[in-house]
């Protein structure tokens, strides 16, 4: 059975974009600003639930269909309405992104309060526990999250394109554009005076405080930005998979993002992109292998996901042991002075 190349490319691109946005946001928080966010999955799931809810609001409630959000009726209705009214669905998608960013940022601001009091591991454990609390609480809110069943059938914004391959390819393009925009923004941010301020807070909080910088507010800003981006990643993913369910938001998701950041190199924006690329390549490879094996052998002795997680675990331990600064270590900040010196050097050299 031949593998669907076009489908693979689009799914790879979507996974890569989601992972890249997540790892960029964590790299901003941990690598640049020094705040270990072990609750990344919380902000990601905020994005997922927002898109589930907003798409239901636009497609069901505003068109006058008052059905329960997790019911099978709702799944069918969302699909059919989205197909007949592509404009409403597009509006739902765009407003999901905007609203998810706002909610993510608000949650990030709340999460920055413990970050003022706690450091390192303690902050990590606090945010991890907060993520678990959020997961358990939202699983109980049947009317908002669909309960343990979750929300299924979130329609893709390009559902009106009847060719499935083309539909996902155009969605992949949108995702990639989002990821690249955030990447360019992050490069600008890190190399700006604000980026230098963030790194100064990471390296010596006291010193930046004594220069009159509002450290706590700036930390809050960083958490807001990072969490907002993570929520956008959640929106992009849930409009692709069409499915939001509480049990998907385990701390493992956070861990995978950490693997990407450590692999690519902390405080290096290009590194996060590389890390996301490697992880999504592993993702794709394991899925293709499992697909091939399954079609050859029939049933599998065990799920290939298990092997993927073991691979991640071994990979991160090797990285931490032999290349703790990551594949692309932190580079000096590209200030105007730095580029001028570099130019002079290259001129002098030639």
């Amino acid at each position: 059975m031949a593998v669907d190349i076009l489908g693979l490319i689009s799914s790879f691109t979507i996974f890569f974009s989601v992972y890249a946005i997540l790892s960029l946001s964590l790299n901003l928080e941990y690598g640049v600003a020094g705040q270990p966010n072990f609750g990344k999955v919380l902000f990601y799931s905020i994005g997922c639930y927002t898109s589930g809810y907003i798409s239901s609001v636009f497609l069901l409630y505003l068109t006058g269909h008052m059905v329960a959000i997790g019911s099978s009726e709702a799944i069918v209705l969302r699909g059919s309405i989205a197909e007949s009214e592509p404009l409403i669905n597009a509006v739902a998608f765009i407003s999901s992104i905007a609203i998810a960013f706002i909610f993510g940022a608000l949650a990030g601001y709340v999460a920055s309060f413990p970050a003022l009091k706690l450091k390192g591991d303690y902050l990590g454990i606090t945010l991890l526990a907060a993520g678990e609390i959020f997961r358990i609480v939202i699983r109980g809110q049947e009317s908002f999250s669909g309960g343990t069943q979750g929300i299924a059938g979130i329609p893709n914004p390009f559902i009106w394109i009847s060719d499935v391959k083309l539909r996902y390819l155009s969605y992949a393009l949108i995702c990639l554009i989002c990821a690249i925009c955030i990447y360019l923004y992050m490069i600008k941010l890190v190399n700006s005076p604000y980026g230098r301020l963030l790194e100064s807070i990471r390296d010596n909080e006291m010193a930046s405080l004594s220069f009159g910088k509002k450290v706590s507010w700036i930390r809050g800003q960083v958490m807001m930005l990072g969490s907002g981006f993570a929520a956008i990643a959640g929106v992009l993913y849930s409009y692709y998979s069409g499915f939001v369910q509480a049990d998907a938001f385990l701390p493992v998701v956070t861990f995978v993002v950490w693997v990407m950041v450590f692999m690519g190199g902390t405080a290096n924006i290009k590194g996060s992109f590389l890390g996301a690329l490697v992880i999504s390549a592993i993702d794709l490879a394991t899925r293709v292998v499992s697909f091939e094996l399954q079609s050859k052998l029939g049933t599998m002795a065990f799920h290939i996901d298990y092997l993927r997680y073991i691979a991640y675990a071994i990979l991160i331990i090797l990285i931490l042991m032999f290349k703790p600064s990551g594949l692309i270590p932190e580079k000096p900040i590209e200030t105007p002075a730095w580029s001028a010196i570099n130019e002079e050097k290259s001129v002098g050299g030639s």
Binding site: D121, F255, V259, F262, I316, L320, P324
Partner: peptide
């Protein structure tokens, strides 16, 4: 750092 050790222990746990 202790944070790296924590991530490593998370990896061990997952493995």
């Amino acid at each position: 750092t202790s944070l790296m050790l924590m991530v490593a222990s998370f990896a061990v746990s997952l493995g």
